[in-house]
Design a protein around this nucleic acid. Sequence first.
DNA 1: AACCCGGGGCG
DNA 2: CGCCCAGGGTT
Length: 351
Amino acid sequence: MNEVFTRNLTAWGKQNRRPLPWVGQKDPYRIWLSEVILQQTRVEQGLPYYERFLALFPHVHALAAAPEDQVFKAWEGLGYYSRARNLIKAARVVSKQYGGSFPASYDGLRTLPGVGEYTAAAIASFAFDLPHAVVDGNVQRVLARFFGVRHPVDSTLGRKTFRELADAVLDRRNPAAWNQAMMDFGSQHCKPRQPLCSSCPLADHCVALARDWVGELPAKRPKAARRTRYFHYLVLEHGGNRYVRRRDESDIWAGLYDFPLIEKSQDLEPGELLREPEAKSWLDDGGWELRESSVWYRQALSHQDIRACFIKLSSKSGKLPKDQDWQALAPDKMRKLAFPRVVARYLDEQG
DNA sequence: AACCCGGGGCG
DNA sequence: CGCCCAGGGTT
């Protein structure tokens, strides 16, 4: 069974390799960059970001030397911004401590920030031809269906099972081509919905197909409920400038910029909002006057449902409390900074 | 082990 | 609207 799986998947891989800029590459920097960009991200979505990053930062030293805000701006809209933070950290380690050369071992790669089991195996196999099997969503799906594994992929037992299975079927003579074939097969043939079972080279021995489990595999644990948050943004204008701050690392969008924010568990009208203690402590004595308030913008994330409203106020004195690190910025300065998607949408529409 | 972290595309 | 995506880090 294993032999059939290996032989047929290898044959499929030879004829169906995807023409992507990082496929077949041996430069560890380019492999690493593409893998981090593609974490939890579709190829079609990540591709333009990969091209842009490579143009802006052709090698690891350029990325290591870049201003952080420039890297975040290049990452804007891609999500999971801890990837951008770790990208900068890892680039600096490779640039300064390793003289620009990525570690040429799985364990060495694993020490880099943002490089977990999957990414370390990917770089080790693609760049260095080392025998490490990648286990991503595609690989899990192929293995779960063909071998009929019903453990949830996000459970401890499931992770162990899929890692061992992936290692067992790995073609150690050509790990790069094997890993590529597994992921390509999962993304193009053994797809999550409407997989191409009728023309599948593995159909004869596929457990899921024989038992009619294709639609339920791979199994996942039930998800936590989505939390709804109401973000009331104060757009404080003073002499053509607006106040922004860089978000800290304890909540969503760490490292990105946004406006003074009052969060509530429900939506408030501007009149109610400005009577809240939080608003009064910020705005009192500043002579702030209400100008207009936007419609509600909505952003659905996998784990949160965020609704944002933008309330514009202006003042001649422009006074704000000093205990927060607000900066008053002109529009041309703001354009260089990265904002959450929902804020960027507002800025695009309002100017 | 459970939880958190974005955004987009698709059925 | 729910699911999925070339996952990783923190608690």
